[in-house]
């Protein structure tokens, strides 16, 4: 079996288990009150982490490159209350522009 198929099988099965564990074990049951307080903050915490890692991370290095320009453009578009699609296109266009310069 090729290395690629090993990756597909191991990562695929592992991800199915990771995503399914909570709903399989706790499905349909209310989380305890304490846990609800935590879960409510999970989305903002994880989203902020995804943003900084995807905008400034490059392997184990932090870099400021064209993606930072894209993020700045996205922030500006959001301040102007642009719809999400416009925000994303503005970010991609800004990054592409910086790379083309």
């Amino acid at each position: 079996m090729s290395a690629a198929w090993v990756v597909v099988l191991v990562a695929g099965a592992g991800t199915i288990a990771l995503k399914g564990a909570g709903p399989l074990l706790l499905g349909g049951r209310e989380l305890p009150l304490r846990a609800q307080g935590l879960v409510a903050l999970l989305a903002p915490a994880l989203l902020a982490a995804l943003i900084v890692v995807q905008a400034f991370g490059d392997g184990r290095a932090l870099v400021v490159d064209a993606r930072a320009a894209g993020l700045a453009a996205a922030a500006a578009a959001l301040l102007l209350r642009a719809p999400t699609l416009v925000v994303v296109v503005a970010a991609a266009a800004a990054a592409a522009l910086v790379r083309a310069l």
């Binding site: 943003i51 064209a66 894209g70 996205a74 503005a90 800004a94 990054a95």
Partner: peptide, 12 residues
């Protein structure tokens, strides 16, 4: 600039 689309998406 597709790689810049994702942080923007998550920011939105």
């Amino acid at each position: 600039g597709l790689d810049a689309a994702f942080p923007a998406l998550f920011l939105a």
